[in-house]
Design a protein around this nucleic acid. Structure first.
Lengths: 233, 233
DNA sequence: AGATGTGAAATTCTTCACAGCG
DNA sequence: CGCTGTGAAGAATTTCACATCT
Protein backbone atom coordinates (compact mmCIF):
# COMPACT_ATOMS: atom_id res chain seq x y z
CA UNK A 1 0.00 0.00 0.00
CA UNK A 2 1.20 3.48 -0.84
CA UNK A 3 1.08 5.88 2.07
CA UNK A 4 1.00 9.68 1.85
CA UNK A 5 4.33 11.25 2.79
CA UNK A 6 2.76 13.39 5.47
CA UNK A 7 1.20 10.37 7.06
CA UNK A 8 4.55 8.61 7.20
CA UNK A 9 6.06 11.59 8.93
CA UNK A 10 3.34 11.67 11.51
CA UNK A 11 3.59 7.94 12.09
CA UNK A 12 7.25 8.38 12.99
CA UNK A 13 6.21 10.95 15.57
CA UNK A 14 3.30 9.00 16.93
CA UNK A 15 5.55 6.02 17.38
CA UNK A 16 7.92 7.86 19.62
CA UNK A 17 5.08 8.94 21.87
CA UNK A 18 3.63 5.47 21.90
CA UNK A 19 6.94 3.91 22.86
CA UNK A 20 7.23 6.28 25.77
CA UNK A 21 3.64 5.55 26.73
CA UNK A 22 4.20 1.83 26.63
CA UNK A 23 7.29 2.19 28.77
CA UNK A 24 5.17 4.07 31.25
CA UNK A 25 2.74 1.20 31.32
CA UNK A 26 -0.14 2.83 29.46
CA UNK A 27 -1.87 0.20 27.35
CA UNK A 28 -4.61 2.16 25.62
CA UNK A 29 -4.95 5.61 24.11
CA UNK A 30 -7.64 7.79 22.54
CA UNK A 31 -7.12 9.72 19.36
CA UNK A 32 -7.39 13.04 21.13
CA UNK A 33 -4.65 12.06 23.58
CA UNK A 34 -2.27 11.14 20.81
CA UNK A 35 -3.28 14.26 18.91
CA UNK A 36 -2.56 16.53 21.85
CA UNK A 37 1.11 15.66 21.83
CA UNK A 38 1.58 16.31 18.14
CA UNK A 39 -0.24 19.45 17.11
CA UNK A 40 -2.78 17.64 15.04
CA UNK A 41 -6.51 17.15 15.29
CA UNK A 42 -7.97 13.94 16.67
CA UNK A 43 -9.60 13.51 13.28
CA UNK A 44 -6.17 13.55 11.68
CA UNK A 45 -4.95 10.86 14.03
CA UNK A 46 -7.96 8.70 13.32
CA UNK A 47 -7.52 9.19 9.60
CA UNK A 48 -3.84 8.27 9.80
CA UNK A 49 -4.59 5.16 11.81
CA UNK A 50 -7.39 4.26 9.46
CA UNK A 51 -5.00 4.67 6.55
CA UNK A 52 -2.72 2.04 8.02
CA UNK A 53 -5.72 -0.10 8.95
CA UNK A 54 -5.54 0.19 12.69
CA UNK A 55 -8.81 0.20 14.53
CA UNK A 56 -9.83 1.01 18.04
CA UNK A 57 -12.92 0.72 20.11
CA UNK A 58 -15.14 3.65 20.98
CA UNK A 59 -15.11 2.53 24.56
CA UNK A 60 -11.42 1.86 25.04
CA UNK A 61 -9.61 3.72 22.29
CA UNK A 62 -6.63 2.10 20.56
CA UNK A 63 -4.30 -0.57 21.95
CA UNK A 64 -0.85 0.99 22.27
CA UNK A 65 0.90 -2.26 21.49
CA UNK A 66 -1.28 -2.87 18.48
CA UNK A 67 -0.44 0.53 17.08
CA UNK A 68 3.26 0.06 17.69
CA UNK A 69 3.22 -3.31 16.02
CA UNK A 70 1.46 -2.00 12.95
CA UNK A 71 3.56 1.15 12.69
CA UNK A 72 6.64 -1.00 13.10
CA UNK A 73 5.56 -3.18 10.18
CA UNK A 74 5.50 -0.06 8.07
CA UNK A 75 8.49 1.88 9.31
CA UNK A 76 10.95 -0.66 10.64
CA UNK A 77 13.85 -1.40 8.37
CA UNK A 78 14.90 -5.00 7.89
CA UNK A 79 17.46 -6.05 10.45
CA UNK A 80 20.45 -5.97 8.16
CA UNK A 81 19.75 -2.49 6.83
CA UNK A 82 22.04 0.27 7.98
CA UNK A 83 23.02 3.87 7.39
CA UNK A 84 26.33 5.52 6.64
CA UNK A 85 27.64 8.98 7.37
CA UNK A 86 29.55 11.12 4.92
CA UNK A 87 31.59 13.88 6.46
CA UNK A 88 32.87 13.81 10.01
CA UNK A 89 33.07 17.51 10.72
CA UNK A 90 31.20 19.21 13.50
CA UNK A 91 27.81 18.16 12.22
CA UNK A 92 28.89 14.65 11.39
CA UNK A 93 30.23 14.14 14.88
CA UNK A 94 27.05 15.52 16.35
CA UNK A 95 25.09 12.99 14.32
CA UNK A 96 27.33 10.17 15.52
CA UNK A 97 26.91 11.26 19.11
CA UNK A 98 23.18 11.49 18.69
CA UNK A 99 22.71 8.10 17.09
CA UNK A 100 25.19 6.44 19.44
CA UNK A 101 22.81 7.09 22.31
CA UNK A 102 19.33 7.96 21.12
CA UNK A 103 19.57 5.94 17.91
CA UNK A 104 16.53 4.31 16.38
CA UNK A 105 16.35 1.05 14.51
CA UNK A 106 18.79 2.09 11.80
CA UNK A 107 22.40 2.13 12.96
CA UNK A 108 25.22 4.11 11.42
CA UNK A 109 27.52 1.35 10.26
CA UNK A 110 30.39 3.48 8.98
CA UNK A 111 31.55 7.02 8.46
CA UNK A 112 33.72 8.58 5.78
CA UNK A 113 35.84 11.69 5.55
CA UNK A 114 38.57 13.11 3.37
CA UNK A 115 40.79 14.29 6.21
CA UNK A 116 43.52 11.69 6.69
CA UNK A 117 43.62 12.20 10.45
CA UNK A 118 40.00 11.14 10.65
CA UNK A 119 40.59 7.84 8.90
CA UNK A 120 40.83 4.72 10.93
CA UNK A 121 39.70 6.32 14.14
CA UNK A 122 36.54 5.36 15.95
CA UNK A 123 34.25 8.22 16.91
CA UNK A 124 31.32 7.61 19.21
CA UNK A 125 31.56 3.94 18.42
CA UNK A 126 31.62 4.38 14.68
CA UNK A 127 34.62 3.57 12.53
CA UNK A 128 35.74 6.35 10.24
CA UNK A 129 37.12 5.51 6.82
CA UNK A 130 38.79 7.35 3.99
CA UNK A 131 36.60 8.16 1.02
CA UNK A 132 38.71 5.86 -1.08
CA UNK A 133 37.25 2.95 0.82
CA UNK A 134 33.65 3.99 0.24
CA UNK A 135 32.64 1.37 -2.28
CA UNK A 136 34.59 -1.39 -0.59
CA UNK A 137 33.11 -0.72 2.82
CA UNK A 138 29.50 -0.43 1.77
CA UNK A 139 29.45 -3.18 -0.84
CA UNK A 140 28.96 -6.05 1.61
CA UNK A 141 26.40 -4.10 3.62
CA UNK A 142 22.86 -3.16 2.88
CA UNK A 143 23.10 0.59 3.11
CA UNK A 144 19.62 2.06 2.92
CA UNK A 145 20.24 5.64 3.92
CA UNK A 146 23.22 7.94 3.66
CA UNK A 147 23.58 10.99 5.89
CA UNK A 148 25.34 13.59 3.81
CA UNK A 149 27.17 16.03 6.07
CA UNK A 150 29.97 17.17 3.81
CA UNK A 151 30.70 20.77 2.81
CA UNK A 152 28.27 22.22 0.30
CA UNK A 153 30.75 22.26 -2.54
CA UNK A 154 31.43 18.56 -2.20
CA UNK A 155 27.85 17.42 -1.72
CA UNK A 156 26.91 16.82 -5.34
CA UNK A 157 30.02 14.86 -6.12
CA UNK A 158 29.69 12.65 -3.07
CA UNK A 159 25.97 12.15 -3.67
CA UNK A 160 26.55 11.04 -7.23
CA UNK A 161 29.13 8.57 -6.06
CA UNK A 162 26.81 7.26 -3.36
CA UNK A 163 24.08 6.59 -5.86
CA UNK A 164 26.51 4.85 -8.18
CA UNK A 165 27.47 2.68 -5.22
CA UNK A 166 23.84 1.69 -4.75
CA UNK A 167 22.47 4.07 -2.13
CA UNK A 168 18.74 4.68 -2.66
CA UNK A 169 18.04 7.40 -0.15
CA UNK A 170 19.94 10.40 1.15
CA UNK A 171 19.41 12.78 4.04
CA UNK A 172 21.18 15.87 2.81
CA UNK A 173 22.44 18.46 5.30
CA UNK A 174 24.26 20.52 2.70
CA UNK A 175 22.53 23.71 1.59
CA UNK A 176 22.39 22.67 -2.04
CA UNK A 177 19.85 20.98 -4.23
CA UNK A 178 21.17 17.61 -5.33
CA UNK A 179 20.74 16.56 -8.91
CA UNK A 180 20.15 12.81 -8.82
CA UNK A 181 18.10 10.15 -10.58
CA UNK A 182 14.38 10.37 -9.95
CA UNK A 183 14.22 7.09 -8.09
CA UNK A 184 16.61 8.24 -5.38
CA UNK A 185 14.84 9.74 -2.40
CA UNK A 186 16.40 12.92 -1.05
CA UNK A 187 15.39 14.55 2.18
CA UNK A 188 17.16 17.87 2.63
CA UNK A 189 17.54 19.35 6.07
CA UNK A 190 18.51 22.95 5.58
CA UNK A 191 19.16 24.65 8.86
CA UNK A 192 19.68 28.09 7.40
CA UNK A 193 16.35 27.87 5.62
CA UNK A 194 14.59 26.70 8.77
CA UNK A 195 16.06 29.59 10.64
CA UNK A 196 15.02 32.12 8.01
CA UNK A 197 11.56 30.69 8.00
CA UNK A 198 11.39 30.88 11.76
CA UNK A 199 12.58 34.47 11.69
CA UNK A 200 9.97 35.34 9.09
CA UNK A 201 7.08 33.76 10.94
CA UNK A 202 8.14 35.41 14.15
CA UNK A 203 7.30 38.66 12.37
CA UNK A 204 4.29 37.58 10.32
CA UNK A 205 2.24 35.20 12.47
CA UNK A 206 1.60 32.60 9.78
CA UNK A 207 -0.80 32.92 6.90
CA UNK A 208 -2.75 29.89 7.79
CA UNK A 209 -4.24 31.32 10.90
CA UNK A 210 -6.64 28.86 12.38
CA UNK A 211 -10.06 29.59 10.92
CA UNK A 212 -12.10 31.17 13.62
CA UNK A 213 -15.70 30.01 13.61
CA UNK A 214 -16.94 32.49 11.00
CA UNK A 215 -19.44 35.20 11.74
CA UNK A 216 -18.73 37.70 14.47
CA UNK A 217 -21.09 36.51 17.16
CA UNK A 218 -20.86 33.68 19.58
CA UNK A 219 -21.66 30.55 17.67
CA UNK A 220 -24.50 28.91 19.51
CA UNK A 221 -23.19 25.41 19.23
CA UNK A 222 -19.42 25.00 18.83
CA UNK A 223 -19.96 21.27 18.37
CA UNK A 224 -16.71 19.44 19.06
CA UNK A 225 -14.94 21.96 21.23
CA UNK A 226 -11.80 19.89 21.57
CA UNK A 227 -10.80 19.53 17.92
CA UNK A 228 -8.18 22.20 17.50
CA UNK A 229 -4.48 21.79 16.89
CA UNK A 230 -1.82 24.41 16.95
CA UNK A 231 -1.64 26.54 13.94
CA UNK A 232 1.91 26.08 12.74
CA UNK A 233 2.60 25.89 9.07
CA UNK B 1 0.60 40.57 2.88
CA UNK B 2 0.31 37.04 4.16
CA UNK B 3 2.44 34.56 2.30
CA UNK B 4 1.92 30.80 2.15
CA UNK B 5 4.46 28.91 4.27
CA UNK B 6 5.61 26.81 1.35
CA UNK B 7 6.28 29.91 -0.68
CA UNK B 8 8.42 31.35 2.10
CA UNK B 9 10.46 28.20 2.20
CA UNK B 10 11.04 28.27 -1.51
CA UNK B 11 11.95 31.95 -1.44
CA UNK B 12 14.73 31.16 1.04
CA UNK B 13 16.06 28.60 -1.40
CA UNK B 14 15.69 30.76 -4.49
CA UNK B 15 17.56 33.50 -2.72
CA UNK B 16 20.59 31.37 -2.14
CA UNK B 17 20.77 30.49 -5.79
CA UNK B 18 20.26 34.08 -6.81
CA UNK B 19 23.04 35.28 -4.56
CA UNK B 20 25.40 32.78 -6.12
CA UNK B 21 24.23 33.82 -9.55
CA UNK B 22 24.75 37.47 -8.82
CA UNK B 23 28.23 36.76 -7.52
CA UNK B 24 28.92 34.99 -10.78
CA UNK B 25 27.83 38.08 -12.65
CA UNK B 26 24.56 36.79 -14.05
CA UNK B 27 22.07 39.63 -14.12
CA UNK B 28 18.93 37.98 -15.50
CA UNK B 29 17.23 34.64 -15.13
CA UNK B 30 14.24 32.78 -16.56
CA UNK B 31 11.77 30.90 -14.43
CA UNK B 32 12.82 27.58 -15.86
CA UNK B 33 16.44 28.21 -14.94
CA UNK B 34 15.60 28.99 -11.36
CA UNK B 35 13.21 26.06 -11.28
CA UNK B 36 15.84 23.63 -12.49
CA UNK B 37 17.97 24.14 -9.41
CA UNK B 38 15.15 23.59 -6.96
CA UNK B 39 13.02 20.67 -8.05
CA UNK B 40 10.03 22.78 -8.87
CA UNK B 41 8.18 23.60 -12.05
CA UNK B 42 8.75 26.88 -13.85
CA UNK B 43 5.06 27.57 -13.24
CA UNK B 44 5.68 27.27 -9.52
CA UNK B 45 8.52 29.75 -9.70
CA UNK B 46 6.43 32.21 -11.66
CA UNK B 47 3.57 31.79 -9.21
CA UNK B 48 5.88 32.37 -6.24
CA UNK B 49 7.36 35.47 -7.81
CA UNK B 50 3.92 36.71 -8.75
CA UNK B 51 2.84 36.19 -5.15
CA UNK B 52 5.54 38.56 -3.97
CA UNK B 53 4.79 40.94 -6.83
CA UNK B 54 7.94 40.49 -8.80
CA UNK B 55 7.63 40.73 -12.52
CA UNK B 56 9.87 39.89 -15.38
CA UNK B 57 9.87 40.41 -19.06
CA UNK B 58 9.08 37.68 -21.56
CA UNK B 59 12.13 38.68 -23.50
CA UNK B 60 14.66 38.97 -20.73
CA UNK B 61 13.28 37.03 -17.79
CA UNK B 62 13.67 38.42 -14.28
CA UNK B 63 16.34 40.80 -13.01
CA UNK B 64 18.42 38.93 -10.45
CA UNK B 65 19.01 42.02 -8.38
CA UNK B 66 15.36 42.94 -8.43
CA UNK B 67 14.41 39.54 -7.16
CA UNK B 68 17.03 39.64 -4.43
CA UNK B 69 15.90 43.06 -3.33
CA UNK B 70 12.27 42.02 -3.13
CA UNK B 71 12.99 38.70 -1.42
CA UNK B 72 15.22 40.56 0.99
CA UNK B 73 12.39 42.92 1.88
CA UNK B 74 10.38 39.90 2.86
CA UNK B 75 12.93 37.66 4.51
CA UNK B 76 15.60 39.94 5.89
CA UNK B 77 15.46 40.54 9.58
CA UNK B 78 15.94 44.06 10.86
CA UNK B 79 19.58 44.79 11.55
CA UNK B 80 19.38 44.54 15.29
CA UNK B 81 17.62 41.20 15.31
CA UNK B 82 19.63 38.20 16.41
CA UNK B 83 19.41 34.57 17.39
CA UNK B 84 20.55 32.68 20.44
CA UNK B 85 21.60 29.10 20.94
CA UNK B 86 20.49 26.92 23.81
CA UNK B 87 22.68 23.93 24.50
CA UNK B 88 26.32 23.75 23.50
CA UNK B 89 26.70 20.01 23.12
CA UNK B 90 27.80 18.37 19.91
CA UNK B 91 24.93 19.72 17.90
CA UNK B 92 25.13 23.18 19.42
CA UNK B 93 28.81 23.43 18.56
CA UNK B 94 28.08 22.24 15.04
CA UNK B 95 25.54 25.03 14.71
CA UNK B 96 28.02 27.60 15.98
CA UNK B 97 30.64 26.39 13.55
CA UNK B 98 28.16 26.49 10.71
CA UNK B 99 26.87 29.97 11.40
CA UNK B 100 30.33 31.31 12.16
CA UNK B 101 31.28 30.75 8.54
CA UNK B 102 28.26 30.25 6.33
CA UNK B 103 25.93 32.37 8.45
CA UNK B 104 23.10 34.33 6.91
CA UNK B 105 21.71 37.64 8.00
CA UNK B 106 20.78 36.51 11.49
CA UNK B 107 23.77 36.12 13.78
CA UNK B 108 23.95 33.98 16.88
CA UNK B 109 24.53 36.58 19.55
CA UNK B 110 24.93 34.29 22.54
CA UNK B 111 24.86 30.68 23.61
CA UNK B 112 23.77 29.07 26.85
CA UNK B 113 24.52 25.80 28.59
CA UNK B 114 24.16 24.26 32.01
CA UNK B 115 27.64 22.78 32.16
CA UNK B 116 29.81 25.13 34.24
CA UNK B 117 32.90 24.45 32.15
CA UNK B 118 31.08 25.79 29.13
CA UNK B 119 30.27 29.11 30.75
CA UNK B 120 32.32 32.11 29.92
CA UNK B 121 34.20 30.48 27.10
CA UNK B 122 33.97 31.60 23.51
CA UNK B 123 33.23 28.89 20.97
CA UNK B 124 33.51 29.65 17.28
CA UNK B 125 33.31 33.32 18.10
CA UNK B 126 30.21 33.04 20.25
CA UNK B 127 30.23 33.68 23.96
CA UNK B 128 28.75 30.92 26.06
CA UNK B 129 26.78 31.79 29.18
CA UNK B 130 25.28 29.94 32.09
CA UNK B 131 21.54 29.45 31.95
CA UNK B 132 21.20 31.65 34.98
CA UNK B 133 22.17 34.59 32.83
CA UNK B 134 19.57 33.88 30.16
CA UNK B 135 17.14 36.68 30.90
CA UNK B 136 19.85 39.19 31.66
CA UNK B 137 21.76 38.51 28.47
CA UNK B 138 18.83 38.55 26.10
CA UNK B 139 16.88 41.40 27.67
CA UNK B 140 18.85 44.21 26.01
CA UNK B 141 18.88 42.38 22.68
CA UNK B 142 16.18 41.77 20.14
CA UNK B 143 16.21 38.00 20.02
CA UNK B 144 13.99 36.83 17.20
CA UNK B 145 14.87 33.17 16.99
CA UNK B 146 16.14 30.64 19.47
CA UNK B 147 17.92 27.50 18.37
CA UNK B 148 17.00 24.85 20.88
CA UNK B 149 19.68 22.17 20.98
CA UNK B 150 19.33 20.91 24.53
CA UNK B 151 18.61 17.29 25.53
CA UNK B 152 15.05 16.16 24.91
CA UNK B 153 14.12 16.04 28.56
CA UNK B 154 15.12 19.66 29.10
CA UNK B 155 13.57 21.07 25.94
CA UNK B 156 10.11 21.89 27.24
CA UNK B 157 11.39 23.62 30.33
CA UNK B 158 13.90 25.72 28.43
CA UNK B 159 11.34 26.55 25.73
CA UNK B 160 8.84 27.77 28.29
CA UNK B 161 11.47 29.95 29.85
CA UNK B 162 12.48 31.34 26.47
CA UNK B 163 8.95 32.33 25.69
CA UNK B 164 8.55 33.95 29.07
CA UNK B 165 11.70 35.92 28.27
CA UNK B 166 10.11 37.19 25.06
CA UNK B 167 11.29 34.82 22.33
CA UNK B 168 8.70 34.56 19.55
CA UNK B 169 10.14 31.79 17.42
CA UNK B 170 12.03 28.58 18.11
CA UNK B 171 13.89 26.14 15.93
CA UNK B 172 13.64 22.97 17.94
CA UNK B 173 16.18 20.18 17.44
CA UNK B 174 14.92 18.09 20.33
CA UNK B 175 12.75 15.11 19.41
CA UNK B 176 9.78 16.31 21.40
CA UNK B 177 6.70 18.31 20.63
CA UNK B 178 6.83 21.60 22.50
CA UNK B 179 3.73 22.84 24.24
CA UNK B 180 3.78 26.62 23.87
CA UNK B 181 1.38 29.51 23.31
CA UNK B 182 -0.22 29.58 19.89
CA UNK B 183 1.50 32.76 18.83
CA UNK B 184 4.98 31.29 19.18
CA UNK B 185 6.30 29.83 15.98
CA UNK B 186 8.01 26.47 16.34
CA UNK B 187 9.97 24.78 13.60
CA UNK B 188 11.04 21.31 14.65
CA UNK B 189 13.97 19.66 12.94
CA UNK B 190 13.82 16.02 13.86
CA UNK B 191 16.72 14.13 12.43
CA UNK B 192 15.52 10.73 13.56
CA UNK B 193 12.20 11.30 11.85
CA UNK B 194 13.90 12.46 8.66
CA UNK B 195 16.02 9.36 8.69
CA UNK B 196 13.06 7.05 9.23
CA UNK B 197 11.21 8.77 6.44
CA UNK B 198 14.20 8.41 4.16
CA UNK B 199 14.50 4.75 5.04
CA UNK B 200 10.83 4.21 4.33
CA UNK B 201 10.85 5.91 0.96
CA UNK B 202 13.95 4.04 -0.05
CA UNK B 203 11.75 0.95 0.16
CA UNK B 204 8.46 2.39 -1.11
CA UNK B 205 9.25 4.82 -3.92
CA UNK B 206 6.88 7.57 -2.87
CA UNK B 207 3.12 7.58 -3.30
CA UNK B 208 2.98 10.71 -5.34
CA UNK B 209 4.60 9.28 -8.39
CA UNK B 210 4.72 11.88 -11.09
CA UNK B 211 1.64 11.52 -13.22
CA UNK B 212 2.66 10.07 -16.52
CA UNK B 213 0.75 11.56 -19.43
CA UNK B 214 -2.26 9.25 -19.22
CA UNK B 215 -3.23 6.85 -21.93
CA UNK B 216 -0.74 4.28 -23.15
CA UNK B 217 0.20 5.73 -26.48
CA UNK B 218 2.55 8.49 -27.41
CA UNK B 219 0.74 11.71 -26.76
CA UNK B 220 0.75 13.60 -30.03
CA UNK B 221 1.49 16.97 -28.55
CA UNK B 222 3.20 17.02 -25.14
CA UNK B 223 2.88 20.78 -25.16
CA UNK B 224 5.39 22.24 -22.72
CA UNK B 225 7.94 19.45 -22.63
CA UNK B 226 10.13 21.17 -20.10
CA UNK B 227 7.74 21.60 -17.19
CA UNK B 228 8.61 18.70 -14.93
CA UNK B 229 10.26 18.75 -11.53
CA UNK B 230 11.52 15.86 -9.50
CA UNK B 231 8.94 13.87 -7.77
CA UNK B 232 9.97 14.03 -4.15
CA UNK B 233 7.37 14.24 -1.48
C1' DA C 1 -22.00 10.94 26.88
C1' DG C 2 -17.99 10.20 24.45
C1' DA C 3 -15.48 7.34 21.24
C1' DT C 4 -14.41 5.47 16.50
C1' DG C 5 -14.77 5.26 11.29
C1' DT C 6 -15.49 7.65 7.31
C1' DG C 7 -17.93 9.94 3.21
C1' DA C 8 -18.05 14.59 1.92
C1' DA C 9 -16.56 19.28 2.18
C1' DA C 10 -13.06 22.54 2.72
C1' DT C 11 -8.60 24.11 2.35
C1' DT C 12 -4.06 24.40 0.70
C1' DC C 13 -0.89 23.80 -2.75
C1' DT C 14 0.54 22.76 -7.55
C1' DT C 15 0.02 22.46 -12.32
C1' DC C 16 -2.31 23.40 -16.64
C1' DA C 17 -3.12 26.05 -20.37
C1' DC C 18 -3.37 29.94 -22.78
C1' DA C 19 -3.59 35.15 -23.71
C1' DG C 20 -0.29 38.52 -24.67
C1' DC C 21 4.15 40.59 -25.15
C1' DG C 22 8.68 41.42 -27.36
C1' DC D 1 8.79 31.53 -31.43
C1' DG D 2 9.74 31.32 -26.11
C1' DC D 3 8.63 33.56 -22.02
C1' DT D 4 5.73 35.95 -18.50
C1' DG D 5 1.36 36.40 -15.89
C1' DT D 6 -2.60 34.26 -14.36
C1' DG D 7 -7.51 32.29 -14.17
C1' DA D 8 -8.99 27.89 -13.80
C1' DA D 9 -8.35 23.09 -13.07
C1' DG D 10 -6.38 19.54 -10.50
C1' DA D 11 -4.10 17.09 -6.48
C1' DA D 12 -2.98 16.47 -2.03
C1' DT D 13 -4.13 17.08 2.55
C1' DT D 14 -6.94 18.29 6.35
C1' DT D 15 -11.15 18.98 8.61
C1' DC D 16 -16.12 18.52 9.19
C1' DA D 17 -19.97 16.13 10.52
C1' DC D 18 -22.44 12.45 11.55
C1' DA D 19 -23.76 7.45 11.64
C1' DT D 20 -22.60 4.05 14.82
C1' DC D 21 -20.95 1.56 18.74
C1' DT D 22 -20.43 0.85 23.75
Amino acid sequence: MALPPRTIERLCCYRRSLQRLLADGQTRIYSHQLAAGHDVTPAQVRRDLMTIRCSGSPARGYEVQGLLARIGEILDPEPEECAILLGVGHLGRALLAYFATQGGALRIAAAFDTAPDRSGVVIHGCRCHSFAELEAVIAPRRVTVALLAVPADAAQEVATRLVRAGVRSIVNFAPVQLDLPLDVYVETIDIAVSMEKAAFFSRVPSTTARAQPPGGGSSPHPEHPHEAPRNRS
